[in-house]
Amino acid sequence: MTAPTAFDTAAVPTRCNSPEDRNRRDAATRELLAARASSTDDAERQDLLDEAVRLNLEMARGIAKRFRGRGAESEDLEQVAFLGLMKAATNYRPDEGVPFIGYAVPTIRGEVKRYFRDCIWTVRIPRTLQDLQTRMAAALPLLAQELGREPSLEEVAVRLNTSPALVRRAEAAYGCFNVASLDRPINDNGLVLGDCVADHQDPSLDRFEAVDMLAPVLDDLSPRDRRLLELRFIENLKQADIGTELGISQMQVSRLLHKIFQRLRTRLDPSAAMI
């Protein structure tokens, strides 16, 4: 079955390369899930849920890619990420006014991390940290939806009535996964796995995570503030040139950029505002 004709999503982008594309996808997703929340017809509710999930499959697939090379098959990671997406779409509350991506990303990541924890441990961590990871996996999606962003380490610790140090240790322990031998042959020419391991981290992975975190925050900025950041970091203009472009002084540009940075830091990590 397909989604009701009242919700034509054929033109909604699923591969988003710009804030505009993400906004369109997020708006369509929220519209679908809001209609699902108000519907009493089971078949219609399922159709709406399926279509909301379909729109965001590429987002889930992108998150799964970030966890490759840690001892799990790529296909398995994608299936787990899709499961996390389904959970996010099922439990999302449109009336909270939170962007869907702000709720879905931590939910999907939590599902993938839970998969590593439960299914492919090599090094066993203390039971207290395993229990804390379980509690974190359950609390993070709810806390993210309440805040409209990913919670800081301190906020997670407060919610779970524990210390930030323990939360940090539990997060770090997500790296104790199965590993493949670097001496494992990968072809008939004597090439082993170790020969193919990059000696540096792929910068595109950090860029993907940065886009996920910053996109909803940047979308909340005013057009003038977004234009300021575009001139500074995309067009690489100096502050004096930005002032000329916008008809303000260099000092005003400096002050505005400082305020924007402070606002972004506060949204991404409230504790950073205290530093």
Rank of each mutant, 00 (worst) to 15 (best):
R45D: 02
D21E: 14
N23H: 12
L33P: 03
N23P: 00
L49M: 10
L48R: 06
A37S: 15
A43I: 12
S38K: 13
T40F: 11
A28N: 03
D42W: 09
D26M: 05
R30P: 02
D47N: 11
L33I: 09
T40G: 14
T40H: 14
L32V: 06
A37H: 14
R36T: 05
S39L: 07
R36F: 04
E31A: 15
A37Y: 02
R25C: 03
A35G: 08
D26A: 05
Q46P: 00
L48H: 06
R36L: 04
R36N: 05
T29W: 02
D42I: 13
Q46S: 10
L49P: 00
R24W: 01
S39N: 08
E31I: 03
A37C: 09
R45E: 08
D41V: 15
D47R: 14
R24G: 01
R22Q: 06
R30H: 10
A27M: 07
D47A: 15
L49K: 08
D26F: 03
R45M: 12
A27S: 13
Q46T: 12
R22V: 06
S39T: 15
A27D: 10
R30G: 15
R25N: 09
R25G: 01
E44R: 15
T29V: 11
L49G: 01
N23K: 12
N23E: 11
R25L: 02
D21N: 09
R24I: 01
A34L: 13
A34V: 02
T29C: 10
D41F: 10
R30Q: 15
S38D: 12
T40P: 00
R36K: 15
E31C: 09
R22N: 01
R25F: 00
L48A: 07
R36E: 06
L33D: 02
A37N: 11
D21A: 11
D21Q: 13
T29M: 05
A27H: 08
R36M: 12
L33S: 07
A37I: 00
A34R: 15
D41W: 08
T40V: 07
Q46F: 02
D47F: 00
A28E: 01
D26Q: 07
D42S: 15
E31F: 01
D26K: 07
A34D: 13
R45F: 05
S38I: 06
R24M: 05
L32P: 01
R45L: 04
E44S: 09
R30A: 10
L48C: 08
D41H: 14
R25E: 01
T40A: 12
D26S: 07
T40N: 14
A35F: 04
E20D: 10
D26P: 02
E44N: 11
D42V: 14
S39E: 04
A34Q: 13
E31N: 13
R45K: 15
D26L: 04
L33G: 05
E20A: 11
S38C: 06
D41S: 13
T40E: 12
N23A: 13
E20N: 03
D41R: 13
L32Y: 06
D47T: 14
E20Q: 11
N23Q: 14
D42L: 15
